[in-house]
Design a binder for these strands. Structure first.
Lengths: 189, 189
DNA sequence: TCATGATACTCAATAAAATGACTAATCAGA
DNA sequence: TCTGATTAGTCATTTTATTGAGTATCATGA
């Protein structure tokens, strides 16, 4: 009963179709929530049945028709209610971290390769978030935008996402470097 | 089929009971994986049946008896195999981030309170990880330990956890400050 | 023209995780 | 001496999430 709130939060600023929502969950929302398209379609259907979102059919010539969803008053109330409840323990789940935890027992070359790959992914995300942030604040400076901008919620979560990926990048590079050094020290020549 | 690897990784350095494992998953392992005790007991039973871990009964006078588990050769092989596979998309899930995403539509005072609370939690974790890291490296410097220490896997993941909490702390403080400023600007006097 | 990929979904089956309720002993403190 | 916390688990049910397979149309590029 918590995916629903992530969906509501994602729909606050834009009217989206299930398909677009799935894209959003692959990009920005992925910073703090993860869900597959099937879950989102199912959740949207439930939310609509409960009157927390409203869908409207949009007929398209060139593309299959779609249904765009907006948050209703009841949806907003539900979000506000949620905002006042206690947070469930936050959670991270990452295969790569598990592998690093086992670093002393698994193939180090493989691990270094994966850390390097992840570093590249992190770099790409950093550019992506950077662009998104620039786009959101337009021609204002960050300080100006945060002080007086209209919708700062998505901006703040995006900032967290950016910092998180920066953290990943630093850590992956450092860890890879350390493992390379140790490998060199153990099997020289 | 992935919790199993987190369990194996957690058992590499110590022989643990299900109960102790659950504790570990609440502390250190929580940096990269999250699971409830019931899941862990179930997973340990499966792993034992498959021969990836071995349990031994320990009779205790003062406490209920317990079963301690160690990773077997087959378990190590499985971990190594896992380390060479592609990573599933990593994921974060955090109620607080959802609430911040909806910052412009929910009760700001409540949000500020929760950000402040989370900042305090982050501070506590930072101290905890700091202590754990000191304990792992003993009297060596970090550089020295990372170069020549025996088991650096847990140290590296702990470093990531520390940086993550530091990121949370900074972000919570900054976000709370921004929201306070905006609140003051909108409803002065 | 023919394959590919994007848009826009749906359905069914299985696997994994969360919730809630229990047992049973010991210990520390009011 | 009673209460609550800690150790050490188990069991059953429900809720979520994942996997895999389909449907259909249109646009793009080789």
């Amino acid at each position: 009963m918590a995916l629903r709130h992530a969906v509501l939060a994602a729909l606050l600023d834009e009217e989206l179709s299930g398909y677009q929502l799935a894209k959003a969950f692959d990009l920005g929302v992925a910073n703090f929530w993860h869900a597959l398209p099937q879950q989102l379609y199912a959740e949207l259907a439930k939310l609509e049945k409960e009157g927390l979102v409203a869908g409207r059919e949009v007929v398209q010539d060139t593309r299959p028709n779609k249904r765009l969803f907006t948050v209703t008053e009841a949806g907003l109330a539900e979000l506000d209610r949620f905002a006042a409840t206690a947070n469930k323990p936050s959670f991270i789940r990452d295969d790569l971290f598990v592998k690093v935890q086992a670093a002393d027992h698994v193939d180090v070359d493989e691990l270094i390769a994966q850390l390097t790959e992840r570093a590249a992914i992190a770099e790409a995300k950093i550019e992506l978030w950077g662009g998104l942030l620039r786009q959101m604040r337009g021609d204002r400076s960050e300080e100006e935008f945060l002080r007086h901008g209209e919708r700062i919620g998505p901006y703040l979560t995006c900032l967290r996402g950016l910092a998180f990926e920066q953290g990943n990048l630093d850590w992956c590079r450092r860890s890879a470097a350390i493992l390379r050094e140790r490998r060199a020290a153990h099997a020289p020549r």
